[in-house]
């Protein structure tokens, strides 16, 4: 029957989505960031889990992130439909039914949490469950539509993966795990507000109370600078813990200097200049923010190698 209906109506709304549609539902690009940060959290930990356990832990953390992405797409289908950036997502485009997105999100949430508990430990599984809850319920259902501080508080859900990776390896939360969490947590507001500066029309149309919509671009520019200034000591400070070192310090100093200069330029920029060059500086800052996060976590990973350890000893690094 559905075949005939599909012939008549085309693909939209048939409920016969392709495999790729379901993969899109899990937000693969966000998942790749989760995989990377969780892997770094797990690999820089002082305890080395069995490689299969480590692989399984990363896969289930990523699956949990994907599950929360599916739940987000289920709940946000109405605003995704309005926004140009998200209109092509599986639910608003009609290739996946909302109920399917909800079902997949809930099923994968349960599977990922239970399997992480069995593969690693139940503290890591509990943190993953909390992350899914925080992203799907606290951020998506509550904060996103009610406060301009949505991405500040909601950013916590994106900051948990390296902490979960660390806990999966060690079984406990320590200062280093909190610092990795804090780097992403403090990085999220400038990253998203830079995006909001040049995608403001989307958020206005969808009535999402982003800071750019409720307080205007000038206030948002000031907030970007303030949060960037607050981020610097956290990111640089991580150099003086067991996961840092001289290589991380050098990378962090360069990236933070560039990030501060970018935030300063955004703050000083009049709106007319931004409109004239189609937000070139803001777009550049947004791209830099991705390199900033990747650079810091790559540096954490490098510091975990014996080669970096030897260099630190050679330099007399005492942290």
């Amino acid at each position: 029957m559905s075949d005939i209906r599909a012939d008549m109506t085309g693909r939209e709304g048939t409920g016969d989505a392709g495999f790729r549609d379901y993969v899109q539902l899990l937000k693969p690009r966000v998942m790749s960031l989760v995989v990377f940060t969780a892997m770094v959290g797990l690999l820089v930990a002082p305890v080395r889990p069995h490689p299969v356990e480590a692989l399984a832990a990363i896969i289930f953390i990523a699956l949990g992130a994907g599950a929360s992405g599916a739940l987000n797409m289920w709940w946000d289908a109405d605003i995704d439909r309005v926004m140009r950036r998200t209109a092509g997502r599986p639910v608003p485009s009609g290739s996946v039914a909302p109920g399917e997105a909800l079902g997949l999100g809930l099923a994968l949430s349960g599977i990922s949490v239970v399997m992480l508990g069995l593969a690693a430990n139940w503290l890591a599984a509990g943190l993953l469950a909390f992350t899914i809850f925080f992203y799907a319920v606290v951020y998506t259902m509550w904060l996103k539509r009610s406060t301009p501080q949505n991405i500040v508080i909601g950013g916590a859900s994106g900051a948990f993966p390296p902490m979960i990776g660390w806990v999966a390896a060690t079984g406990h939360i320590s200062l280093e795990a909190v610092l990795m969490f804090m780097v992403i947590f403090m990085w999220t507001p400038p990253h998203f507000w830079a995006l909001a500066l040049f995608m403001n029309d989307d958020y206005t149309k969808a009535r999402v109370p982003m800071l750019t919509v409720t307080h205007g671009r000038k206030v948002t520019r000031a907030h970007i600078l303030v949060y960037t200034v607050a981020l610097v000591p956290v990111a640089v400070g991580a150099a003086f813990t067991s996961i840092g070192g001289p290589i991380y310090l050098a990378v962090s100093l360069v990236l933070n200097a560039l990030f501060l200069i970018g935030a300063w330029r955004i703050w000083r920029r009049p709106e007319e200049a931004a409109t004239a060059d189609k937000y070139a500086v803001e777009k550049k800052f947004f791209a830099l923010s991705l390199a900033y996060l990747f650079g810091h976590f790559a540096a954490f990973l490098v510091e975990a190698t014996p080669w970096a350890d030897a260099l630190a000893r050679h330099l007399g690094w005492g942290f």
Binding site: A6, D7, D16, A17, F19
Partner: peptide
């Protein structure tokens, strides 16, 4: 029909995912 190809792709993807899960 294009629909059959899509269903085949979906079934294949699901099969491979389940296989990978069992292997893991």
């Amino acid at each position: 029909h294009e629909l059959h190809k899509r269903r085949w792709g979906r079934n294949l993807g699901l099969g491979l995912t389940l296989g990978a899960f069992i292997a893991l």
